[in-house]
Design a protein around this nucleic acid. Structure first.
Lengths: 202, 202
DNA sequence: CAGATCAGACCGAACGTTCTGTCGCTAAGA
DNA sequence: TCTTAGCGACAGAACGTTCGGTCTGATCTG
């Protein structure tokens, strides 16, 4: 990607473009927003835009990577305060619930991108698949610490609840959606903890 | 909506347009497909298109109403074979699971439309909100027959699992997604049935 | 005959991308 | 200290294509 060397300090113009794109793509959709709009609101010129992003698709990929980093940050934070096997999962769930209730919440950037880019050959689609693989893998690892034998189905169940909550959070009452999600997660963790306790008692 | 009187037989041209739009919009996304494409593949002319649909938005609304009718048909079928309070819900869940595993599955047309039309004032957005209200209401009514007191949260939980399954069904292994969904629903129904049995035994 | 459909041209706007010349800033070299 | 070169950003025009929508006249069918 142009001008994005790992150790180079990103230019102010590039940051402005990426920040603007992240905000507008998330709020309004990707296809619904043209590069003209991003350029105008970032207050840079066309030449500057194309200097940093060779095409609109490059900007979209940068947007998704930006959101991915934000979500990684959230997960890393939950892992840092790690006391018992269940707590990181609850911390992640609470973070998701808070996000759902935050102003400007507009669902999952990756699920939204999937709706707009269904072609599995498109780089945008491939980017979101990679993100989802990371998230499922992370939850699976955490679930394995709760109960090794059922980690896979339990993680899939967690992610399904997450996906459902993210999808519905801006289509109905976010408070009810968050409650439903947290209850589902708590029930899931309770069942899996009891399995672990039952097997430990043997 | 033009030429769509309740008792009039829809013309062949209109049917072709709607059928084509339903297929392509669902498979490829709404913004990603222009009217030219629909017209070319439906093998009608531009004037015919605009005779039946005054604008692209009218076609999109017709597409969503078409999918809504299909889903109503699925639910009506599940209700028709109604033996016990739990069975319609299981039938609906099984129908959803089969859909997820069917060729060409591309998620929920309404969730996909929500991603592309986030503006709550847009008629497309309002159409999908109405559809979701119908679905949640239907599931709530069915859950009330399982256990009156927890019908609301249980229905929301069911719909959350459904949304998550629909979102993930074409982004990962559809068989695993279906299994996860059906297990989640079975667990939910078991818990709610046991609540009903417990309260009946008092 | 009336309505539906056809063929096809047209419109202005928007789309993503390319390009040119100019300006400002910074760092390095004389 | 001054000059120069290089880099990044600016202003703005231009390109070809696609977009959704409008319109006209001809043909077909019931």
């Amino acid at each position: 990607m142009a001008s994005d060397e790992p150790n180079a300090r990103p230019s102010e113009a590039r940051l402005k473009l990426l920040r603007t794109a992240t905000r507008i793509f998330y709020a309004e959709g990707i296809h619904a927003v043209g590069v003209d709009r991003i350029i105008a609101e970032a207050k840079v010129t066309r030449a500057t835009f194309y200097r940093h992003f060779p095409s609109k698709d490059d900007l979209i990929l940068a947007y998704l990577r930006e959101v991915h980093q934000l979500e990684r940050g959230m997960v890393d934070e939950a892992l840092a305060a790690n006391l018992s096997p269940v707590e990181p999962l609850l911390a992640i769930a609470n973070s998701i619930a808070q996000n759902i209730q935050s102003p400007g919440f507009r669902g999952c950037a990756f699920l939204n991108a999937a709706a707009e880019y269904p072609d599995t050959n498109h780089p945008v689609h491939q980017e979101l698949i990679a993100h989802r693989a990371w998230f499922l893998g992370t939850i699976t690892t955490l679930m394995a610490q709760v109960h090794e034998g059922t980690a896979d189905p339990a993680a899939r169940h967690f992610v399904m609840l997450r996906d459902g909550a993210m999808a519905a959070g801006c289509l109905s009452d976010p408070t009810l959606v968050s409650e439903t999600f947290l209850r589902g997660v708590e029930g899931l963790l309770r069942i899996n903890s009891e399995r672990q306790s039952t097997e430990s008692a043997r």
